[in-house]
Write a protein that binds this DNA or RNA. Structure first.
Lengths: 221, 221
DNA sequence: GTATTGAGATACGGTTCTGTATCTGACAGG
DNA sequence: CCTGTCAGATACAGAACCGTATCTCAATAC
């Protein structure tokens, strides 16, 4: 069945397999906890193959980061852009979390490892920051849409609300990994729901009580 | 000036200095990114001193974790227990965040490193989980107090609300480290304020609209 | 003052990792 | 087929790290 591979195909395959093995190992024992030898061993190659495809571990991490960024951005966009209503977005979000929950610990460990790695590399930090910004922007857009659908003016800039939701995703995941008993699978989505209702309520109250009120927490630029 | 040290004092001093050096290095280059040699070098000792005081790196990390847990718990309790009103708690929170913000990246990096380390050690995970649970419990208690002071019944179990706030602290810190421009120093506290107002509003609305309504997101026990 | 004890320094053997340099065998072009 | 080329394997040298075993000398005890 397996068709005979051309040279380039073969090369790309091994590159992918090396990246895949690295992904697993980074989640399991951390970036600086894994050696090149472990990576090539798990991928079924030798160190020669590795140094033929990557300049070193640093470049591999870079490539992995790029790959993950691309992947993640596609997911977020699929979640927000391809939804007709805000409620549909919520449903997508729930399904996505359910899926991710299968390997939450590994997923989060990898994400955290890459975050730490980027944190320590001055060249990489802005790249990571930009990635997060894009995610938040997508969220903000979905929120804007959601509030508009309910004809409610948000109680704070949607960017801030998006920041809150995005941060909650990270923070709740951390807590869930630590003690799954205290944080259910759907907690994130339920919390999003709760907050949306709260904000809607606050906005409506503010609208009836005092039409001017939005003296809010906008960080200095 | 420096009084002549007794044996035990000297021993404790070097132990402390080793822990201190390890703290710095772990934040800078990660737990598995630092070698015992680096630790003793920074502390101004040799490897002999290290193995005299610790069984190995693992035990040092354990000791460090214990130290941090103790320290952190004291801080949280100082913040909640020693406050007369909820607003005072908020003020303590703001001051605490201001102080922490001086070295947020380092602080968070260390916290994250220890989290990852605990995640990978089956013996340690429940210890970490318990630590978080205590923090959340303190928060929940403060929340209870805050709602009671305003004679409002919370729109969801205070444990869930505490979980939200606690998670937000982590998540927002992560975002702030990535892009300080988008997340101000006081964002956390401002967000707490916003959420409290939102929840109060939601609770009051629910109370006037439908006295039965709390079909909420309570994770299964 | 002398003996003892123990904190910390020094020295060593063994392992693991990295990076490079060289070899081999399969693919591609004629 | 036959040959040049390139992906990947093998071999090797240097460095870092770990853990232990031994040594030194100051703090205690007598």
């Amino acid at each position: 069945m397996s068709k005979r591979l051309t040279r380039q195909e073969s090369r790309e395959l091994t590159r992918d397999q090396l990246l895949c093995a690295a992904t697993e190992l980074f989640a399991e024992v951390g970036v600086s906890g894994t050696s090149v030898e472990q990576i090539v061993e798990r991928a079924g190659y030798t160190r020669g193959a590795f140094y033929g495809n990557f300049e070193g571990k640093h470049e591999l991490v870079l490539a992995l980061l790029e790959q993950r960024t691309q992947h993640e951005l596609e997911e977020v966009q699929a979640m927000t852009l391809r939804a007709d209503s805000f409620d549909e977005t919520i449903e997508h979000l729930r399904a996505w979390h359910r899926e991710r929950d299968r390997n939450l610990a590994g997923w989060l460990a990898l994400r955290t490892e890459l975050w730490l790695y980027g944190l320590r590399d001055p060249k990489l930090l802005p790249v990571l920051a930009d990635r997060e910004r894009r995610s938040r922007a997508a969220f903000a857009q979905a929120l804007e849409q959601g509030f508009a659908a309910r004809s409610v003016t948000p109680p704070a800039p949607v960017e801030l609300l998006a920041l809150i939701l995005h941060s909650l995703d990270d923070g709740l995941s951390i807590q869930r990994v630590l003690s799954p008993a205290d944080t259910g699978t759907d907690t994130v989505v339920d919390v999003v729901d709760l907050l949306m209702r709260s904000w809607t309520s606050l906005a409506r109250n503010a609208a009836t009580a005092a039409p001017d009120s939005t003296p809010d927490s906008t960080p200095a630029p």
